[in-house]
């Protein structure tokens, strides 16, 4: 297996990966309204979640070849369930400490205790759930990794793929340098709720249909 191939595949498809992961991590960064350093921590946690998910997928691809990850009724339902969890995470996060809207005020009582003491939970779980979703670059990676017929090789291919795609996430923490952080926070919260609704719809349709 040519391992730089993993990095090259990641580099060539990373922009699409960013488009898939952006609706999850960008609203979070905007909504948290933190400086560049803290944003680096959040993006790193998000990427760690993705790495963990990719390694799991790599492991499955290595064990079962592409069979398990080929689109089938059962797998689509599983992805649907992960979409629903992701949507719940995004919607709850969107309303968390969103005191500018009335629904956000009621949500504070429910979520403040949890999210306030664990600010790193949302990006980490968001990263895992986003990583588990099957997007076109991931299908390409799965097909390639499964062809190694070796568990370690498959996982390593995914790690390389992860490195290639992660380069596109480097600019994200610099959202922290923008002025008007209060406005960006509101936009981030709305975006999280909106992205959550999209994932909820997609997830429910996958489960039902």
């Amino acid at each position: 297996m040519n391992f730089p191939e993993g990095i090259l595949l990641g580099l060539s498809t990373g922009a699409i990966c960013l488009a898939y992961c952006g609706p999850v991590i960008i609203p979070y960064l905007l909504g948290e309204n933190k400086n560049v350093h803290t944003n680096f921590v959040y993006v790193s946690l998000f990427l760690s979640g993705r790495l963990l998910a990719y390694m799991i997928i790599g492991l499955i691809a290595g064990i079962a070849g592409t069979l398990f990850l080929q689109p089938s009724g059962f797998n689509i339902k599983l992805i649907g369930v992960s979409y629903v969890f992701l949507s719940i995470l995004l919607i709850v996060y969107g309303f968390h400490r969103f005191k500018e809207v009335c629904l956000g005020k009621t949500q504070i009582k429910v979520t403040s205790g949890y999210f306030k003491n664990r600010p790193y939970v949302a990006p980490l779980i968001g990263g895992i759930l986003t990583g588990l979703n099957i997007c076109p670059p991931l299908i390409l990676a799965v097909t390639k990794a499964a062809s190694t017929h070796d568990i370690a090789g498959s996982i390593l291919f995914f790690v390389m793929f992860f490195i290639g795609t992660s380069l596109y996430f480097i600019p994200l923490p610099f959202i922290g340098i923008f002025k008007r952080q209060h406005v960006l926070r509101i936009i981030g919260k709305f975006a999280a709720i909106f992205a959550g609704l999209i994932y909820l719809y997609k997830g429910l349709f996958m489960i039902i249909n």
Binding site: P23, V101, C102, I186, G188, F190, F194, A195
Partner: peptide, 22 residues
């Protein structure tokens, strides 16, 4: 009308631009 809602189009722009790319 809650003035915070005037920022909602920017959130929609962000999400639809990314979702359309994805």
């Amino acid at each position: 009308v809650n003035p915070a809602f005037k920022w909602m189009p920017f959130a929609i722009l962000l999400i639809i631009a990314l979702a359309s790319a994805a």
